[in-house]
């Protein structure tokens, strides 16, 4: 077993141990923090699918997070509480949005792609702001968690934690299957040399669009989880800085591995949580840290971790 795989298994095992340890230490705060970390990890993993493997720098990924969260919010508002309805709607609504956005955006490349995905997420953001019926700018409170029956009561923080954990595992597993499939290899071919893939006769647009839709749909599920975590949705979840944060998590963790974004999400949110307790002006510290990471680390945290292990081994 190689070092990378060991690092991944240790990290996931540690995540599984968080609730019992936190409860034993009488610090339930950490259950919430790590649930949040895993929700963003799912979003970051979905972005990594297209960014790390397809080379598509989407700067509007928060839009799907928002669509997933609003799916739960709006359905609850109209009295639909069923968990399957919530998550299926979040999944398919985000997939549909990604299909439309991807269809237009993927015609462009490079900077134009970055900017057009940003523009689309701004459109979705302003759509959220204008939904006066659902709270507009102020957002919408959600009365109850998604209902999966008595056996899976998401109101219990520990149950919710393991629900998120299970979904994270599912998406990591699915992701690793996708990446190693013919489809995933094609996607990586597009990343390294799209012109050659076209010359070889592959309809690259279709492959990119399929990956884009998958990423959007998974991020929609993360959005539904986020709505359950906070029991509140507002347009701020889709603010463009959120897209920047998700990108940052992927980069912090290191591109080109699926487990990397999990490390990245943990590092980013823990850093944020620690700094914001130290000083009110934590962003003045976080900003330069992010700059330093980008300037001086090419492999991300997970890369450093795995590289250290390889050197020793």
């Amino acid at each position: 077993m190689d070092a990378k795989r060991v690092a991944a298994i240790i990290a996931l095992a540690l995540l599984a141990l968080v609730p019992p340890v936190a409860m034993a230490a009488d610090a339930p705060f950490y259950v919430g923090l790590f649930a949040r970390i895993m929700v963003f990890a799912i979003a970051a993993v979905s972005l990594d699918l297209i960014l790390g493997y397809g080379g598509l720098v989407s700067f509007g990924h928060a839009a799907y997070l928002g669509i997933g969260a609003y799916a739960v919010g709006i359905l609850s508002f109209h009295g639909v509480t069923g968990g399957f309805a919530h998550f299926a709607t979040a999944f398919f609504a985000a997939a549909a949005a990604a299909l439309v956005i991807g269809f237009v955006s993927l015609r462009t490349s490079g900077v134009y792609f970055i900017m057009i995905t940003l523009a689309f997420s701004q459109m979705v953001y302003f759509l959220g702001v204008s939904l006066n019926q659902y709270g507009g700018d102020d957002g919408l409170n959600i009365a109850r968690h998604s209902n999966f029956g008595a056996a899976l009561d998401l109101k219990d923080p520990v149950v919710f934690y393991y629900f998120v954990f299970a979904l994270l595992l599912v998406f990591l597993f699915l992701g690793s299957r996708i990446v190693r499939s013919r489809f995933g290899v094609l996607l990586q071919g597009v990343k390294s040399n799209e012109r050659r893939m076209i010359a070889l006769g592959f309809p690259t647009f279709r492959y990119k669009l399929a990956a884009f839709v998958m990423a959007g749909a998974i991020c929609g599920v993360a959005g539904a989880l986020f709505a359950n975590l906070t029991l509140f949705v507002s347009p701020s979840i889709m603010h463009w800085t959120r897209s920047g944060e998700i990108l940052m998590m992927v980069i912090l963790g290191g591109l080109g591995s699926l487990i990397g974004p999990v490390f990245g999400a943990a590092a980013y949110l823990i850093l944020e949580s620690v700094l914001s307790r130290l000083t009110e002006h934590w962003q003045a510290v976080l900003g330069p840290i992010l700059i330093l990471v980008v300037l001086f680390s090419k492999t991300g945290l997970y890369g450093l971790f795995a590289m250290g292990a390889r050197r020793r081994g």
Binding site: G244, Q283, A284, P288, V294
Partner: peptide, 12 residues
């Protein structure tokens, strides 16, 4: 990298 580093500058 440019997007992310300048994103850090904005926060700062």
């Amino acid at each position: 990298d440019q997007v992310l580093a300048t994103f850090g500058l904005i926060l700062f």
